[in-house]
């Protein structure tokens, strides 16, 4: 009779998910990263649709576990995680808030131009690419020739 009232509202679920950090880059949350594509009830089951950043990203299974744990901690019993690969994840889904947090953390956010705009450490504009690949599948390695510090750049895909 009061079945609907037993389910926390969808907005509330998004708020909870907003507090779940990315396991590899804990400074941003899963919702900042834009990988949670949908949250909906299917009868009594809460279905969370998640898309991977990169096909082989090892964080994917940890992310699923973290989502489930966070929602269980809020008392949700029936959870189903659905993987969706299309449309493929794009860095356009990274929120402006997420991009800002990345830069403060020392990771240059993605830009449409395909390279970092400025050094996340000193703000310098003289930059050089070291490698197309970095410490995680989603990042590349760059170096600032002003402050000489290397830094990660979040690749634009």
């Amino acid at each position: 009779m009061t079945q609907l009232a037993e389910h926390p509202p969808i907005d509330q679920i998004w708020d909870w998910l907003h507090a779940v950090p990315d396991p590899e880059i804990p400074v941003i949350s899963l919702t900042d990263l834009g990988i949670i594509r949908d949250v909906a009830y299917d009868g009594d089951t809460l279905v969370v649709t998640v898309t991977p950043t990169y096909s082989g990203c090892p964080a994917t299974s940890i992310i699923n576990l973290d989502i489930e744990t966070a929602l269980r901690d809020q008392g949700i019993q029936n959870i189903r995680l659905k993987q969706q690969i299309f449309p493929p994840w794009t860095t356009d889904w990274l929120t402006p808030e997420g991009a800002e947090k990345l830069e403060k953390y020392g990771i240059a956010p993605p830009t449409a131009a395909g390279g970092p705009k400025r050094c996340p450490h000193c703000g310098g504009a003289n930059l050089e690419k070291l490698s197309q690949f970095g410490s995680t599948p989603c990042k590349a390695q760059w170096k600032c020739t002003d402050c000489l510090e290397p830094f990660d750049y979040f690749k634009c895909i």
Binding site: P52, Y54, S55, G56, C57, P58, L130, S131, Q132, F133, G134, S135, P137, Q141
Partner: peptide, 15 residues
Amino acid sequence: EEDIALANTALDLIG
């Protein structure tokens, strides 16, 4: 850098 690049490529392919 090349070690990381190769491992990342392998990871994508296996994914």
